[in-house]
Design a protein around this nucleic acid. Structure first.
Lengths: 195, 195
DNA sequence: TCATTTTTGTAGTCACCGCTATAGAATTGA
DNA sequence: TCAATTCTATAGCGGTGACTACAAAAATGA
């Protein structure tokens, strides 16, 4: 008598098996999207990189946008956790800013300097739906940081101003990183800026 | 006996007269390129805005890239003069930074906040030639500012760092302006950043 | 063996891109 | 009036974008 192995991940799946690893594909797409941005990565590019044809791509990921959203969600979760940790560790508003910007620099200079995936695509992409999605992600971040700033004693209007300050700094770091500025230089730059 | 009026601007020109004002077209193109960026403005868009057909566009401007270069040159000259004036008026390196950033903010918040035409397209465009052109413009600017910083007493390595600092700040201001941040908020942000 | 299921490659859809060949319309000079 | 010149609209070029209809291929279950 056989036991149903529905909980076992190695369940035999009917039909022709996929000829490539979807996880590998997502990783390749992640670097491509991070480097070039949503608009400048074509499905044809991704297919070439994955060595597959369009039908395989669409069967596995649904659409270019769906794949980007998956990659973006992973990035967003990863960075949100790091920023949350930075905020939680902060003891003063100024300390929060320093910790957040230092965290940002480490992310932005990954993979030879790709900047922030949210900021970069918010500035680059012509896709309106994507634009709205990215804006909402950014707003979520700001809400969280704002709460921490309030917790550290800033008045509502000071929270607004400090949030704008951090935003401008992060955008500058993202852009500079994308244009090739190295992590050490970015650190020196914002240290000097806050002289 | 007739006198040749080759020096008179109202010389009668043979052939069918142009049905639109090329100068108006350049102005319309300027706002379009500033708002949307080179890649996201199509020749069809420009033709629709100018109420002309593609052949008229190409007869008047040569190519999309040629028109952009014209618009860019005008922008570049205008801003270069302003930055030069800001640098010339500066009495200390810190004063130079303040003046340059304030000048930048006024440009970036023109036309409902379009940011810096050089920085924005450097980050957005996928065109490699354009990329190189914009980079060279940016480098020229930095060379000029660097000379002023040296004149004001900064050591070579401090010039480098200060230049990176100003660059990061300008990129942040450009991006934030493009995302809708107002001039007053931008001013408060960089003031606060330099606490 | 054979039906069922899923993936695969071929080949194409339609829309848009920058750009242009061609011929007609509108002007000037003779 | 008529040739020369210049701009105009029509229509279409070749290329690329995201995406897909279709049938063959490769696995499973019976």
């Amino acid at each position: 008598m056989m036991v149903k192995d529905s909980l076992v991940p190695t369940t035999k799946i009917r039909g022709r098996p996929r000829g490539f690893d979807a996880g590998d594909g997502q990783r390749i797409a992640q670097t491509a999207f991070a480097r070039e941005g949503y608009d400048h990565v074509s499905v044809a590019d991704l297919c070439a990189a994955l060595n597959i044809k369009p039908p395989s791509f669409y069967a596995a990921y649904g659409s270019k946008r769906a794949l980007f959203d998956k990659v973006l969600a992973a990035y967003s979760d990863r960075t949100a956790a790091a920023y949350e940790a930075a905020c939680a560790a902060a003891t003063t508003p100024l300390d929060l800013r320093q910790r957040v910007l230092r965290t940002a620099i480490t992310f932005y200079t990954e993979n030879d300097g790709v900047g922030c995936m949210v900021i970069a695509n918010l500035l680059n992409s012509g896709d309106r739906d994507l634009h709205a999605h990215l804006r909402s992600i950014m707003q979520e971040r700001q809400v969280i940081m704002s709460r921490h700033l309030a917790r550290l004693g800033l008045s509502p209007e000071d929270v607004q101003t400090e949030m704008a300050t951090i935003s401008v700094a992060m955008m500058g770091l993202s852009a500079a990183a994308r244009l090739g500025m190295e992590a050490a230089t970015l650190l020196h730059a914002i240290e000097r800026l806050q002289s």
